[in-house]
Design a protein around this nucleic acid. Structure first.
Lengths: 220, 220
DNA sequence: TTTGTAATTTAGGCAAGTCTAATTTATATT
DNA sequence: AATATAAATTAGACTTGCCTAAATTACAAA
């Protein structure tokens, strides 16, 4: 294992919270993201900084370095490839693969991932619509527009979600919403921004603003 | 993870060294098998004994309990199923999958293993000819006769090997020997028991006694 | 400019798993 | 029956990753 499971999880969290490089991330954000304490995060930040995986100044937050970003993208690539394997090959639901992939992603072998990638036909997106970094750590333009802020009456194709937690995905499943499904925005409430949409199946579903923020869409 | 990776590795080692239950295993055997020290083994034996996975009396060796045997068989099942996946699906050589399976076997999810088993078509043997325990921990009769002690002139089919280390398997690969291959025993040296065999491909290969002990065969 | 406060860091500890060095024990051999 | 010795165990320590509680520090508000 190039880095420990713990180190990889921190790098992934910092990379994600910093929206892919750039932004400084707060100790407390990382702690809440990884379900741990701020003190533990501080400890780990010192270690990662020592290894030049993040640039860290006490009390000022962290950001991944080029090297740390590369390591994070490698983990993300493994995670997303395993998710494709779990849904496409083993037929798991798209709402139940995140947790398993979280374990499989730490198995270290470039050869394994390279063969898995080939076997799966070099997929470009995972089951949640997230792009899979290539073997050089290149990440294609990702999900962009989210469903909130879209016009009333417009048509869209769901491209992905911004939260991979099983309960949220099951909630969407119950409404027939998942990547690839077409949506028509019937009405947007001017007061709370809640939305009524027509799903491909013909059903009409009500979506609160919080939910529309977590669904990304592409042109129909 | 039902048990830690370390606990699972110790259970597997004790189970194997005890030839599947029964026999008491020595601390030093475990230490050398797991590449660690006798002191570390003693520590772990106390923990496993605490959890009733092994029955252990100081200075007298250990043996797995019913519960420990079950846990070991679960790990072995996962290991061997992943090996089949790696060779049959990802096309790894039979000599390079042991190490990777050693990592994958600790990913904990009964559902994952059950689906993997179904996808692979419920295989009964791994690439080295070892039987795969079923989901209830039942192990079919395994490899039996090894090539040493066989009669001069007799014909056999290689059923498996008793050592999964890559260097040994590569050595056999170079001689064209692997499970499923037919062998004819041309000559056995009366002094050192070394053997000259004709391999399916027509090649004749010389095998030292140490090697013949590690190859298992079935009736041709 | 001072001060209150929330966020962060430090200090001190714990558990798992490992190690080396010292001690104990079983047992084989006189 | 005594004893030598190889194997096993204990003692004491280290590392990683985590925690709680007690300082610190940045910075916004007065």
């Amino acid at each position: 294992m190039r880095y420990t499971t713990s180190e990889e999880n921190y790098l992934k969290a910092i990379f994600h919270l910093g929206h892919g490089q750039q932004e400084a991330v707060l100790t407390s954000e990382i702690a809440s993201n990884l379900n741990t304490t701020a003190a533990s995060v501080t400890d780990m930040l010192k270690k990662l900084s020592e290894k030049e995986l993040v640039s860290y100044e006490r009390y000022r937050g962290v950001r991944v370095t080029r090297k740390g970003e590369r390591a994070a993208l490698d983990v993300i690539r493994r995670h997303r490839l395993w998710e494709v394997f779990l849904t496409d090959v083993l037929k798991f639901g798209w709402d139940e693969v995140h947790h398993l992939a979280e374990e499989l992603e730490h198995v270290s072998s470039d050869e394994l991932i390279s063969r898995l990638d080939r076997f799966l036909g070099h997929p470009r997106f995972d089951p949640h619509g997230d792009p899979i970094p290539d073997k050089n750590g290149k990440l294609l333009a990702g999900k962009v527009r989210s469903l909130d802020g879209v016009n009333q009456g417009s048509d869209w194709v769901v491209s992905g979600v911004l939260d991979d937690a099983t309960p949220f995905l099951q909630f969407l499943n119950r409404k027939g919403i998942r990547p690839g499904i077409r949506l028509n925005v019937i009405h947007i409430d001017p007061y709370d921004q809640s939305m009524l949409v027509a799903v491909e199946s013909g059903r009409e579903e009500y979506l609160s603003f919080d939910v529309t923020q977590l669904i990304t869409v592409a042109q129909a």
